[in-house]
Design a protein around this nucleic acid. Structure first.
Length: 568
RNA sequence: CGGUGAUUAGCGCAGCUUGGUAGCGCACUUGGUUUGGGUCCAAGGGGUCGCAAGUUCGAAUCUUGCAUCACCGACCA
């Protein structure tokens, strides 16, 4: 490709709306352009990268035995009513009507369509197991699209769905997909980790996320510093403190804490450690038959944070987690937020394992402006249950039993689930078994955020000059950068000849034939992250040499023109 | 959805307080200059100032409404 016939579209200035580095560089290097909130056009260079990612994903999926299909992005609403997700999915599901006023959705995912397809096409156990995948545009009407293509509303995803007669068979395919995902991210050249994950609204038991490690990631991942353990913080278990709870030594005392509302203020006022206080959060429980919403108290140690996902798994807590309103707090605790405590509270009380291990702690007195000191479980408050409802923090013992927790940020680029029968049951996806019995299938589903990978790769591979693409996904393998070609016939002839040679060898090379100053060319190619620059100048031509510059290592070397082909 | 802020040339911004010919830098075009790290000089093209209504002789500027975009959003018990 010659730059004179290409759309480079590099920018010197960073558009103001780009927050994270990958978004800024994708705009500056001419990979994408913003169209509307969460919607992006892929320019030629960006599309090349996207297609390389797709190619690797496709090859590895095929190698793992999955077969490619392509399903519509627009899907009839009745499919979603059949699965129950028309109600469950919420406003992220974009709903629309055709000219006949028939309701449709823009597919945020394709469980319904694939399950329908398989239930129509497959009727015998002999046709199983089956693993189908597609690379398709998805649409999710995100509350808050951000970070460019990292969290866009429209995005490209590889999604695969496997169908089985037994859970053993599903587990086997799940493991094959797990291994395939590892190969994919290795081939992409990314620093990634598989981590244990919550199955979320999709349901099912076993689930792993694949994260690219980067400070700008939106997820917190808990690692063990001594083992391979890694889990999304949503899922990482906080173990109960070891040993017996210390005995009570203080008596319960009500103290005035005027204007001290936050844990920090109360702890400071009473001159105690934040760790020896508890905070009490009031949340809504599931509605009963009369339409009343019970209020539930969640008690945490003062320095800990509530884990919403863990809380939502409790039967007493409504999903999605909803905090009690000021009126509900007043009705349930007879005080305002800031003075709530578990003692003499006549609602369900769920205490985190760490908070339940405290003795002589400080808590709200359910009276505005007062707290208790010297509070003790069982003696002062006995009507409670204990559960794991907090986020793990750095230094906690790892739930695997080895080492301590370390927390890093990650970008979720893959997620694999064992779905079970949820969709197969709802959509009557069954086959006849060997014994002639009708049996509902069990399913797995496996996603990779293809467009997000492009952004994640940049987050992990850049410097102050621009992108440093991993070799496997660089838009061009090399660029020819001639110095003052329009003045030097020798430089021009050498560049043209080299361009021919590289092209004939099937190497993707960008020939910078613009009449630009060297600095402009260097800056553009470094911004675009081309791994190898072939710099041709009068300076080295007498020795029949050109200069080689490696974008990743920054190394420069001289190489004989005849040897150029050998480096690819 | 709530809070905050923004919207003026392709991009980054000034002008608005105090209403009166719409500006700067980058990018773009032309000519010259320079040529191994984002040259310099000169001339030029490009705008219904987000949309609508109002106030006014006159609105980018004041008022109201709407739209779009961005940032923040249990963390408080």
């Amino acid at each position: 490709m010659r730059t004179s016939q290409y759309l480079l579209s590099t920018l010197k200035e960073t558009p103001a709306s780009a927050e994270v580095i990958s978004h800024q560089l994708m705009l500056r290097a001419g990979l994408v352009r913003h169209l509307a909130s969460g919607l992006y056009t892929w320019l030629p260079t960006g599309l090349k990268v996207l297609q390389k990612v797709e190619k690797i994903v496709r090859e590895e999926m095929q190698r793992a035995g999955a077969i490619e299909v392509l399903m519509p992005m627009v899907q009839p609403a009745d499919l979603w009513e059949e699965s129950g997700r028309w109600e469950d999915y919420g406003p992220e599901l974009l709903r629309l009507k055709d000219r006949h006023e028939r309701p449709f959705v823009l597919g945020p995912t394709h469980e319904e369509v694939i399950t329908k397809l398989v239930s129509n096409e497959i009727s015998s156990y002999k046709q199983l197991p089956l693993n189908l995948f597609q690379i398709q545009t998805k649409f999710r009407d995100e509350i808050r699209p951000r970070f460019g293509v990292m969290r866009g509303r429209e995005f490209i995803m590889k999604d695969a769905y496997s169908f089985h007669l037994s859970d053993e068979c599903l587990s086997k395919t799940y493991q094959i997909m797990y291994d395939a995902y590892c190969r994919i991210f290795e081939r992409l050249g990314l620093n990634y980790r598989p981590v244990l994950a919550d199955t979320g609204s999709i349901g099912g038991e076993t689930s792993h996320e694949f994260h690219v490690l980067a400070d700008s990631g939106e997820d917190d991942i808990a690692f063990s510093d001594e083992s391979d353990f890694a889990a999304n913080i949503e899922k990482a278990e906080a173990l109960a403190p070891v040993g017996e709870r210390p005995a009570a030594t203080q008596s319960l005392t009500k103290v005035a804490t005027p204007n001290a509302k936050t844990i920090e203020e109360v702890a400071k006022l009473l001159a105690v450690e934040v760790q020896s206080t508890v905070k009490t959060l009031l949340v809504c429980g599931p509605e009963d038959e009369q339409g009343n919403t019970p209020i539930v108290a969640l008690v945490l140690r003062g320095d800990h944070q509530l884990n919403e996902v863990k809380a939502e798994h409790l039967p007493q807590v409504a999903t999605p987690l909803t905090f009690a309103s000021d009126q509900q707090i007043l009705a349930a605790a007879n005080c305002s937020a800031g003075s709530i405590g578990p003692i003499n509270l006549s609602i369900d009380i769920i205490v985190d394992r760490s908070a339940a291990h405290l003795a002589d702690f400080v808590c709200g007195a359910n009276e505005d402006g007062y707290h208790y000191t010297g509070a003790n479980w069982d003696r002062d408050c006995s009507n409670y249950t204990v559960a794991d409802i907090r986020n793990v923090v750095e230094g906690d013992p790892s739930p695997c039993g080895k080492g301590k927790i370390v927390i890093k940020r990650g970008i979720e680029v893959g997620h694999i689930f064992q779905l079970g029968e949820k969709y197969a049951k709802a959509m009557s996806c069954a086959v006849l078994t060997e014994s002639g019995k009708n049996q509902t299938l069990t399913m797995g589903c496996y996603g990779i955020g293809v467009s997000r990978i492009v952004a994640a790769a940049i987050e992990q591979n850049h410097d102050k000059y621009g992108i440093k693409w991993p070799k496997a996904i660089a838009p061009f393998q090399a660029a020819i950068v001639p110095m003052n070609m329009h003045k030097s016939a020798r430089v021009k002839a050498t560049a043209e000849k080299l361009y021919q040679q590289l092209q004939q060898a099937g190497i993707e090379v960008l020939f910078d034939d613009r009449k630009e100053r060297p600095g402009v060319m260097f800056a553009d190619h470094e911004l675009m992250g081309t791994p190898i620059l072939l710099i041709i100048g009068e300076r080295n031509l007498d020795e029949e040499k050109i200069e080689l510059k490696n974008r990743i290592s920054g190394e420069k070397s001289l190489i004989s023109i005849n040897e150029v082909m050998s480096i690819f």
